[in-house]
Amino acid sequence: MKYIKFLLIFLLAINSETYAKYPDAAGIIKKIDENMFSTNRVFESVMTINGKRSSRSIVSRTYSVGDEKSFTEYLSPASEKGTKMLKLDNQLWIYSPGTDRIIQISGHLLRQSVMGSDLSYEDMMEERKLTDIYDAKVIGEEEISNRKCWVMELTAKVEDVAYFSQKLWVDQESYVPIREDLFGKSGKLLKRATLENIKKIQGRWFPMKFTYKDMLKEGNGTVFEMTDVKFDQKIPAYIFSKASLKK
């Protein structure tokens, strides 16, 4: 009996030591959010979609405010140039210059992939702060891509979330996740995002390259590369109106 008590105390000690060894999880994801989310941002990006037959790159400029408003204009290739996408809350409109039409994307269509990528419209729209939707826990330390990372486990604390849990590898220096594994409730790995090329922009660390891969599908995933990011800009309000789609 005594022996068991001793063992318990010992185990507890180890346990508390573990906690002591790792920083506070809530603190980490708060730092991640501080890096990754901003009141608004303006960026240019190149999305490279690696299809089975060909790869193509799509250049766009995006203005976004938190997770409720975003406006994207496609700049190239020629076939997509001038196409614009406006998202307000849960609604999405697409403007195509060739047809001069504004088309609303709703319901099931939001679940379709955007331009053949591994991202759905919904994936693109889902941009909530981790602290709002997940409870976090640090479960270890690992080195990937030559960076020391905290390994974190995030579990949804709200119900309306696309991925029930996430496993994050958070760079210890910059507090930017450099890999995100997204899981279903059953524990099945559904998507993997790899974040690279972390740069300091306006006082925050930000990954300039994202690679998304739908783990159930074949293919090489979609690469999203930022070429120019600016945070906390003055974005005129008219940008986020349907009128600006046709401009």
Partner: peptide
Amino acid sequence: LMVRWRDVQGAFDAK
């Protein structure tokens, strides 16, 4: 075989 579905809230899962 792998089946992927979404729950009532839209969360993905697969099994």
